[in-house]
Write a protein that binds this DNA or RNA. Sequence first.
DNA 1: TTAGGGTTAG
Length: 841
Amino acid sequence: MLSRIHQFRRTLLIPLTPQILTPPTSLIFTETSVSAANLTIDEEPTTTTTTTFLSSPSDIISGILAGLKGLGSVKSFRRDHQFRNLFLSLSSAQIEGIIDSLRTENAELAIELFYLLRNDYGCKHSRVSQFLIAHILAGKRRPKALRSLLQHVVQEEGCGSAPSLCELLCDGFRDWNSNCTVWDMLAFAYSRIEMVHDALFVIAKMKDLSVQASVVTYNSLLHNLRHTDIMWDVYSEMKTTGIPQSEHTNSILIDGLCSQSLIQEAVSFLRETRRVEPKPSIVSFNTLMSGFCKMGCVDVAKSFFCLMFKSGLLPDAYSYNIIIHGLCVAGSMEEALELMNDMEKHGIDPDVVTYNILAKGFRLLGMMSGAWTIIHQMLHKGLTPDNFTYTILICGHCQTGNIEEGFKLHKEMLSGGLQSSNISYSVLFSSFCKSGRVDEALSLLYEMETVGLKPDVVMYSILIHGLCKQGDVQRAIQLYKEMCSQRIFPNSFARGAILQGLCEKGTISEARMYFDTVVNSDLVEDIVLYNIMIDRYAKLGNIGETVQLYKQIIERGISPSIVTFNSLVYGFCKTRRLAEARRWLDAVDIYGLVPNAVTYTTLMNAFCERGNIQAMFELLREMEARAVEPTHVTFTVLIKGLCKQRKLQESVGLLKDMFAKGLSPDSVSYNTIIQCFCKAQDTKKAFELHSEMLLHNLQPDHVTYNILINGLCVYGDLKDADRLFSSLRDKNIRLTKVAYTTLIKAHCVKGDVEKARRLFCQMVELGFEISIRDYSAVINRLCKRCFINEAKIFLHMMLSQGVSLDQQICSVMLDAFHLVGDLNSMLELLAEMIKCGLDPG
DNA sequence: TTAGGGTTAG
């Protein structure tokens, strides 16, 4: 304790004169002078509570004050460590004292010092210091700076801080000159960051003190309360206190009514105000038109144009843009373009916003060429594209799959000096991740930081999900931690992505451990996380855990969703307990949920697999009776059912029905039916369907090709299969191991062992993972046809690749050796078996 | 008045 006092006394005795506080360019804190750098303080001096700034300054403060006043400015001390250390060693009360003293003598210096400490030295100011500066700024009529300062204060203090801040203003600053301005700005600041209750508290306190809030503050409050009825309480308070309304007040109220879908009331309100003020503001009309457009009533919105003219008001660019936007959203591009012409005729030049709206209209219709035409018109008019323009184009290109063009525009935007936004980065992130280019998305994440943008939780979630999807769960977890360290709180999406990643790439116990940690320790009641976990267990056929987790949901009072039930239905189907699956489908009603197409399709598929086609169609009828619309997956299951019954024409008919219903069959739909035709030995029709796919712009996938190759191998001509295989390879179409093994097996059967061997070697060279099953498939077939030497070649190949023998393959080979009387090979193999620990008996 | 993105079920 003594040493602390001693130290403290030393700080008080430091002579801090203008000679010491000189700009860092000269020699400051020279060796001979006592400097702040020499100071060592074990602990911060005790911080005294409020209003200490009114007490008389201590010696050290006097020294510092003298020094500061001599300097006149502290701007050049931004990077001065010694100056910084000196101030960081002061207590809040001491800083308050300094600011308060400077306030009267050199207010500018007080402001400068305040921001230097906060922005450059990272010092967290006390509430008193902040209010002192607030009063200085208010007195100097610097509303922008005052607003920014108080917004910073309330942001830091957080929700529910109004009572204590009000108390401080009441106790410490009661009769200060600029107190009214500070009070009003405090209320405004709370309102601006949507801490409405705090704002209302400040206003109530102001009323007690007979301090009137400004119309701007009231308007902001009305704006934030526009979704609620409290809006009207505030409005009537405004009227009773006699605060004159601004032209915005009415339009905010109209906006409020529109946002509550009380559009008729909004119209009536406008009529009312017209009686009082015959020429309402154009903003009110625009707000009302926007309200109608948002409800999809563009025609009604347009009719307000006449009313505006009648009221002696001329529509402005906003008015036109609102209607043009409404038309674009409705897809009426022609009319939107006409209105732009009208606009020009009325002497209002379309602005960047008009062109952006139109460009987006074309983008929404997938018509990027139309979007470009608009942009060219805009350039022709001498207007400069802004970041909205670029974002629309980037988004459009990314959505039509042209990431390269999108990325090019992104770079162009940056090099053109435009500030990019989280929005355009999000679009790029998402597109890169969707096309498996997560690394490029990640490098953009780091680029963002260099342009001063901070990724948000959604952007992190996109990347985490992308990493998980490509199996990089470890990197995903790393990124997740990075996000947390940036104090960005993970939400359902980010957690869901990690859990999904662990489920797919890790073990179920790893996933469960993560799940339990999140669900139990973070008190997260997230049905999505439960759904992911339940679905995993269902997929694995672990019905016990599936039901257990369902019970946990109910016990914890969490509402299950239809997804929960769909996974349960799946689990019971998977374990072939169809009657129970049906009961789970019925249980959906208890929670006020409605089974959807997925619920029905899951059960229908299970009946189809069981060969109970009748039950499948009964479910379809039930679906229709309950007005649950079947999807393309439902139809695919139906097609599968019909195929099982060999009703080929009917299944083709269903395919046609799908198109008629506006449902697009996917590759699975086609694959199902193509396979059916192959099995019926109608490869011609199978290939016709393949062409039909291409005609519908549907890319056949590797399964389609496996089916066709297999069809030709088994039911057609092997030469055709070879030709198809080669042509696909020449076209660089991705083929899987199945395509190779199908063809290899066919060549083994047909006796072209050399061809089979060549293909097998190619398959190995391509790096496919070859299992004992692949070798068995070949060796079994060769042995069956007594190609013993050839079988031996494959056996050696297998052993040299490090694939171990198994009982089945040995017994097939031994039988074959026995059949041809190859005793040596038999003994050799028996010895090998003993080495492998297999039973030679 | 104009730009955007993410999770779970068949």
